[in-house]
Nucleic acid binder design. Sequence first.
DNA 1: CTGAAAGCGCTAACAA
DNA 2: TTGTTAGCGCTTTCAG
Lengths: 374, 374
Amino acid sequence: MKRDSTKPRKPSLASKPARARPDTINTKAPKIDIRSVAAHARVSIATVSRTVNHVATVDPSLAARVWKAVSELNYRPNTQARALVSGRSRMLGLVVSEITNPFFPELIREFEEVAVAQGYELLIGSTDYNPRKMEDCARRMLERKVDGVAIMTFGFEDALVERFADEGIPVALIDVAPSSTRVNRLSVDYGAGIHEGIQHLAVLGHRKIGFISGPLHLHSAAARLSVFHNCLRTTGIVPQKLWMVEGDHTLDGGRDAMNKILALTDWPTAIMCSNDMTAIGVQHALFEANLKVPADFSLIGFDDIHLAEYTIPPLTTVRMSCRDLAKAAIKCLLARVQPGNSTLPTVAQVTTKLIVRQTTGLPRNTMQDLQPLS
Amino acid sequence: MKRDSTKPRKPSLASKPARARPDTINTKAPKIDIRSVAAHARVSIATVSRTVNHVATVDPSLAARVWKAVSELNYRPNTQARALVSGRSRMLGLVVSEITNPFFPELIREFEEVAVAQGYELLIGSTDYNPRKMEDCARRMLERKVDGVAIMTFGFEDALVERFADEGIPVALIDVAPSSTRVNRLSVDYGAGIHEGIQHLAVLGHRKIGFISGPLHLHSAAARLSVFHNCLRTTGIVPQKLWMVEGDHTLDGGRDAMNKILALTDWPTAIMCSNDMTAIGVQHALFEANLKVPADFSLIGFDDIHLAEYTIPPLTTVRMSCRDLAKAAIKCLLARVQPGNSTLPTVAQVTTKLIVRQTTGLPRNTMQDLQPLS
DNA sequence: CTGAAAGCGCTAACAA
DNA sequence: TTGTTAGCGCTTTCAG
């Protein structure tokens, strides 16, 4: 016998016996490591490693022996050891705004499906639009040495993004504004959907259109509000500051924002929302005020979460395909992670389009309010 | 100088120079590892390790030097190396049914908050009630060597649970049925909530009550259906098989199930659902059929997700506190993981209670249908 | 209480 | 192509 797996792994300089394995219970089955497999297949551990990692230069007959041993012993490479030595964790970070907003679970599902299929785990972090939590997410992802990170929330600090870039970690970032050339950008054509929505409302006769935004302390939420302003002007409608209310992308925020609008003396006839959850909150506020949708108010959401089809009445909304988003993000991440690929950042465009359901209709007092477009 | 961090780490037997660090770019800041800190603080790496791990026996003055070096060099212990040597990953597994059911994100958020605060990461897996995916989840969690796993979905195969127990990994399992004494059980008093709901309906005058269940191929979903049956009988109502329809805990499933009921010639006057998403699907089916809630049908959900308050009309439902659930699960997991704690499995009880909102009312044709309770 | 040194299980450089 | 071996960065004996 050329090799003997029972011999000490290194010629011990000291004469002490090797430290006993810290088995919690000695009756447990012995841990199968790469050495057991090597011994069983009568090859070196290097050959086992190469075989398991699908290195092409392994002799087929040896490879066969190795695979046989692997399955007989039910060998599973130790992820931790692999990660330590290779520096790659086979984990991907996914940063979202708020996991309780149904848009994100839908996105997470897509992500997870692809990631797991490729042998990656997902590390999920929610920012809650909170700078401290963003920092926290970044730290966690960095600490766990994710192989790539998708930042699917607006308003993630640039400095934090740079930290990933500095470590050579591929980043996929959803955003509207152009940013560093070091990240892969998923640029959302937010304006297109808003424009389509406003057109739709205008055609129905709406001239008094309100907007409930996301948290305005986020640069990008403010940006989206101004996109709305511009679209309004393009359509020939003068934006009314009083009808632009800040929400926070939650149900409660939508309800509260709508109640602020209802406290006004002059009401808009239609409301656009920065996301669907906000719109559902608005629907609720209207229900409580005994106002009807779309008879009293027309309503347009944003995202097109699955639930939008199920609200009462079903919500007219702007669809931003989270499938497309997730697929694009993970595709470019994986491409960067897999060896031998270009390291140039990519830019993908995510489109938006209006889905008309039943929350939009003619405005109240149609005749009285209708002004000719300027 | 007693120590020199630049000397080779082991007396090289071969005369070759040490392998160069595989720095991608040589201009990058040098990686700070435990050795840099040791050198900087003029102590051994063992002392750094002890200090960082809060071992009590370190001399305060040395500890101070170490902490100073740690912060000056901004040292972060390498998670992978720690995991490899200690066998503990500081990751917790969380298995849910379906991440797109809002109940679970709410649960995940609670979980994440506690876990992250304790320095743990969460590995999330969805089963979609699919045995193959359950197997997959178990494999992933096992492979990544989670320190503990919370199984927050019904119908997770016992054999899979045993695998964790075999590896000595603490398990927290939500279930109704008693199971192995090796797992921590979160026993949900599902019956209490259902009973309360049926009482509520009975008091309103309902005698014809339908039930839309979860996927019946799951042992526990069938169990819950029979809980419903029993509660019905206790209240003196005879269960009607035709009004027991299988759903799948999704919006679509709820809608489809309700449409099946609507296709019947004899309708129930009230519907209970196995979860809130199902109930929202039912509301939608009713909306489409131009039927009113609660005028034409009373409706009760289960879970009390945040959204339940926002449906139109707001949903009467049975609350199962996901906060309590998450807190109980993670508490017992962490307790088992932290050293020096009892290793005895615990059983926690999760209660349920009816939250009356606006989807329940008097039955249609009240006078005609009302039968005295037997 | 401290430090030297032995590995954790694996990958990859290098030698054969 | 295959095997030998040096670490990856850390924890943990064990000897002082």
